[in-house]
């Protein structure tokens, strides 16, 4: 296994009194794809949101334990959350482009980060769109509204937007669950390309998708991490009976 990019130690999370994550210990390897699977409500999204401190925005949340990224505890007081989020891109289930042009959607992040040189911005936008495998489809309509794109295109545009700020980690929460099979296939192929440069964590309720795209799989159940291992191992001979039952559709 490659070196761990993200490590959690006894990560426990409560929403008010309700425990959503129970003492999770996980090593997420660098420049590989790690998939989180498990039935609805088992804590996958909650865990994902811990990794870029998005849960900070929810007042009732209480977190115990540690999350280390590149060896640094991201919940330390001196951590700059803005910088942290720059390092970590996030793609959601529902694509959420701004009601602006395709170009502006991708240029937005770099601009906020202080890049104003027009030529530089154009370069960033083009390479981000290329890396998100959507360039050919939009290169002649860069100034059209992003909202005119299809769902699958919007999702890849959102990935381009994420890439434009040069993150190291990309978190994806059910990125293809609202897409048709062809668009889903494109996103999956894209993930294969992206893992050469980025550490990717993907939440999916589609087990077959986890099998196809990921190198490692974590199976969550009722806020617990039941099993974590190589995807090829989990899907051919998991160690834990509950995992076997879940992936074969016997419960959940």
């Amino acid at each position: 296994m490659k070196e761990a990019k993200i490590v959690t130690r006894d990560l426990t999370l409560h929403y008010g009194l309700k425990m959503a994550l129970n003492s999770i210990n996980l090593h997420i390897p660098e420049k590989e794809v790690t998939a989180f699977i498990g039935p609805s409500g088992c804590g996958k999204s909650t865990f994902l949101r811990c990794l870029n401190r998005m849960n900070d925005l929810i007042p009732s949340v209480h977190i115990k334990g540690e999350i280390l990224i590149d060896g640094l505890d991201i919940y330390q007081k001196k951590i700059d959350v803005v910088n942290l989020r720059k390092k970590i891109g996030m793609v959601f289930q529902k694509s959420n482009p701004f009601a602006k042009s395709i170009f502006e959607n991708v240029a937005y992040g770099p601009k906020i980060n202080g890049i104003s040189d027009k030529k530089k911005l154009t370069e960033i936008v083009e390479s981000s769109l290329k890396n998100a495998a959507i360039w050919d489809e939009v290169k002649d309509r860069m100034h059209d509204s992003a909202l005119g794109l299809s769902g699958g295109q919007q999702q890849r545009l959102c990935i381009a937007r994420t890439l434009a700020v040069e993150p190291e980690i990309i978190l994806m929460d059910e990125p293809a669950s609202a897409l048709d099979p062809i668009s889903t296939g494109k996103i999956e192929e894209l993930i294969f390309e992206l893992k050469k440069k980025y550490t990717i964590v993907i939440v999916t309720h589609n087990m077959q998708q986890a099998a196809r795209v990921s190198d490692h799989t974590a199976f969550f159940y009722l806020g617990e991490l039941i099993e974590f291992g190589k995807t090829r191992k989990i899907f051919t001979a998991p160690d834990i009976k509950q995992t076997e039952e879940y992936i074969t559709g016997r419960f959940g």
Binding site: Q208, A211, R212, T231, R232, F235, T236
Partner: peptide
């Protein structure tokens, strides 16, 4: 073969 069956349907 086992791997392809399991991972790619």
């Amino acid at each position: 073969c086992q791997r392809i069956f399991a991972l790619t349907q």
